[in-house]
Design a protein around this nucleic acid. Structure first.
Ligand code: MN
Ligand code: MN
Ligand code: ZN
Ligand code: ZN
Lengths: 127, 127
DNA sequence: TAATTAACGCAACAAAGTCGCATTAGCTAT
DNA sequence: ATAGCTAATGCGACTTTGTTGCGTTAATTA
């Protein structure tokens, strides 16, 4: 259960680092030119999430997106209570920095926050 | 493009009314005892959403949930900027009443809000 | 350098949702 | 009431997204 460094892992990580947006599996697969097997990519991403290297966003298109979080690299325990914006035109999914707090009804315990707003980003709005 | 009333439509609607939670396709299918075809249920739900009768939630389990909204019956234009809570134990998905407002970065236009918090609901927390 | 086992590739599988098409049955206007 | 129009249905095939089993490869450690 000790993690190993492999070329695949390094490749996926560097794609995530270069993009400063969240990436879906197919975006990664494309960026990797199909050199890495589908299942492998999925497994790498799941491991990244387990290890707290990335966080997973389930967007309103039903797909999972994976994002490196600044804080993830630094703070051990931190929340991911921020929204994500998915542009319906350029398909970019990005983290919105402001952390939000939701107060749940009495007796409810939150385990996971998943907030996505879709629309048109500033880049695409101009055009 | 004028809608018709059919037994299937009525059945789906009444299940949604009886439940005061959001329901996924498979929950509905079960509640309907498999009397209505899968594709038909999907189509009915999509029509309900188009017509503003229900709103669609994409939860962090990747599934779509459909909820009648109080306001949907009354107000013509209203927002669905509220969170939903998905209990990891009883699997209920419910609307949290407080409307939330998110301020997006300059130039961003929101089209859809999709907020889901998963965890344990008060019912299940006690047990 | 050898042993251990995490990670890989491949294939099969599962779940969620959509779509084409022939048939059925609401609605409307006669 | 009846006929015509076409929305809605059922069935099947299909797509997309993601997972899992298994035999093989290769990263780590001793
Ligand atoms: Mn983070
Ligand atoms: Mn509503
Ligand atoms: Zn954009
Ligand atoms: Zn519960």
């Amino acid at each position: 259960m000790k993690r190993r460094n492999t070329p695949s892992k390094t490749a996926v990580l560097s794609v995530l680092e270069r993009a400063n947006t969240a990436l879906s599996h197919d975006m990664l697969e494309e960026a990797l030119d199909g050199t890495i097997d589908r299942a492998t990519i999925y497994r790498i991403l799941n491991r990244f999430c387990e290890d707290g290297l990335t966080h997973r966003i389930v967007a309103d298109d039903g797909k999972q997106y994976f994002a490196l979080c600044e804080e993830c690299n630094h703070q051990k325990a931190h929340s991911h209570n921020h929204f994500h914006f998915r542009c319906l035109q350029c398909e970019r999914v990005e983290c919105l920095s402001n952390e939000v707090s939701v107060n749940l009804p009495k007796g409810y315990r939150a385990e996971n926050f998943n907030g996505v707003i879709s629309g048109v980003c500033n880049r695409c709005a101009v055009a």
